[in-house]
Amino acid sequence: MPRPFPAMSERDARDLLEGYLGEIVRLLAWADRRSIADVVDELRDGLIEATDVETSRGAPPDAAAQEAIRRFGSPQLVADTYSSELAIRYSRRNARAVLGCFLLGCLLWFLGYELALGVPHAAIPPPSWTRDLFLSATTAIQYLPPLGAVGAIVHLIASKRLDPGDRISGGVSRAGARLSVTALLAQLIVMAAILTTGGPALWTPGRTAITVLLVIAQTCALAMSIKVATHLRLATHRISCAYEAGSDVTR
């Protein structure tokens, strides 16, 4: 009996594959464009290879494409496992940027503020609580950047071979990220304390420029640190989704 409609063409099979990839792209919409493009290009290459294998065994194009898609797994499962890996990569990239901001902050403070311009302790009128706070804050700001940098380094080391299902390395990694966030928040508060208690003595053009740069660097570092922590949480969540799907084969 003749078929009422023509068999699916290779183009239709290709549309099936593109529809599958489109669903994965939709689920990975949170990631950056370049990462998504790499994911899609890699998956497309594999899907076409798999379809060609099925076609060479005599399967019609539509059945071959459907079998290739079945073998790759549901878009949700594929997107979840990719999301987990992408989130860890982003967290590592941001942690490196945080480390760079910390180093920049240290250079600005120690070389620019303390050595080149000098902290005007003498200009703060004694005795007063503002002077005490100013002196405490200038002491604290020396220790906070190294502390935050240690957090970023701990995260980078722990996450190098991080498997999102590994609770120990995941816990160490998250602890490092939280340490960075805490140190950065504290650093911004301490900087605010220095600026408000230092008074007019601090507001020379050189100090103002360095202060602005410091605030920008540390605010960027804080934003990236928060992203590091968010991505780590996302990585753990996505792998949990894969576990729930009962198909976690990423380890």
């Binding site: 594929v78 990719y82 990569r89 990423t250």
Partner: peptide, 10 residues
Amino acid sequence: PTGTVYPALH
């Protein structure tokens, strides 16, 4: 599931 092998390679 083929699609999950790629993230493992990554």
